[in-house]
Design a protein around this nucleic acid. Sequence first.
DNA 1: TGGTTTATGTCAGCCATGTTGACTTAATTG
DNA 2: CAATTAAGTCAACATGGCTGACATAAACCA
Lengths: 208, 208
Amino acid sequence: MADINQAEKYVNMTDLNEPLSRGRKGGGAKRGEGATAGGKGSPMPEAKLHEFAELLFFAYRDFTGDPDAILKDFGFGRAHHRVLHFVNRHSGLRVADLLDILNITKQSLSRVLKQLIDQGFVEQQAGSSDRRERLLYPTERGRALAERLAAPQFVRLTNALEAAGPGAEAALRAFLEAMINAEDRPKVSSIMSTMPAETRQGDKGDGT
Amino acid sequence: MADINQAEKYVNMTDLNEPLSRGRKGGGAKRGEGATAGGKGSPMPEAKLHEFAELLFFAYRDFTGDPDAILKDFGFGRAHHRVLHFVNRHSGLRVADLLDILNITKQSLSRVLKQLIDQGFVEQQAGSSDRRERLLYPTERGRALAERLAAPQFVRLTNALEAAGPGAEAALRAFLEAMINAEDRPKVSSIMSTMPAETRQGDKGDGT
DNA sequence: TGGTTTATGTCAGCCATGTTGACTTAATTG
DNA sequence: CAATTAAGTCAACATGGCTGACATAAACCA
């Protein structure tokens, strides 16, 4: 799939420190005119890419903003949300799975996971085939909170998908998947295909 | 530390908002469908929305992950990246604009902005029409770093846009814009349409 | 003119959440 | 039984959010 052919030139662009005339320093200078970018007149693709980067920033900022407000009332933060989400959606996963998903250290995870367990949002259960494993399940309260946190995100996503148009979902999915590190894509696929079944007990072969 | 009482209060609010599936009591259960967010359109399967939420999480995680390694070599963090990006792309903006874009406090901004200024990546210039304003500009060094940070993101975005297909850009843009808080969209549009030129004077009413 | 508001900067401290390193415990495995 | 593995824990530290209080200079206004 699309290699870095097209993209390569942007990498090279890194080294170009183009001497843009942008400053306009000095007291009374009015900033009036352009001196925009590299001096190529046509609508540069870089501008487009910058726009997508910024849209992504704003979109994600607001996407996470909704649950953050709710979480504050529980004394939780975004980290708790992430943990609760994955425990709820992929219940029965191991601590190691969670570490792998979140890309954080077990010490960081431990802090929030402990709070979620102590306050009755998440339960642990020893693995049946390997009793060293602690399989994680949401409690009823945990599921309720997870859904409460998901609700505004669902509204947002549904509206955004609708705004994208009916046929855009596949393209959107392809876009998002391609944004993920190539080496992590199989893992992500495996995670997402793991149903939130409370029925898993000794399931560990998710192919790490 | 909100008690469970509060938790249930919010759970009830969930029901007020959205008829999301609320079954699955007592550990058993199945995932239902039928969340209609926004009220229009066909019911959006819950599982699909969860998938998009997770894809967004992974995509953004990796999108922001790339520049982090570079930033570490400069002793900077993600906060510096955000500031540098917006100063570079929308140079001449005021401190207040940046606060508005980033949604952080001036004390938080001050910490990273000061470092960027002290180390010669960003320059300030008093506003010409209002000399209280400090307009922010990237230095040559700042531009070089900004481009270096952007480069891997460009690669990623370019490949992802290609993976999405040629006609998908408009839909993607629509999706991302719709993900932004409705009340912030004019502001975002205004920001994004602000060329990285010094076109602003005493512009304060960019429409909050 | 002088008082008020505004834009920005700063000090001081707290909180959430990431990090590394070292160590323990329990269970599996060879 | 020894070694490995999954998980938990303690301690220390860094980043980057936050609030509150206060300072300064410029603009604005009556």
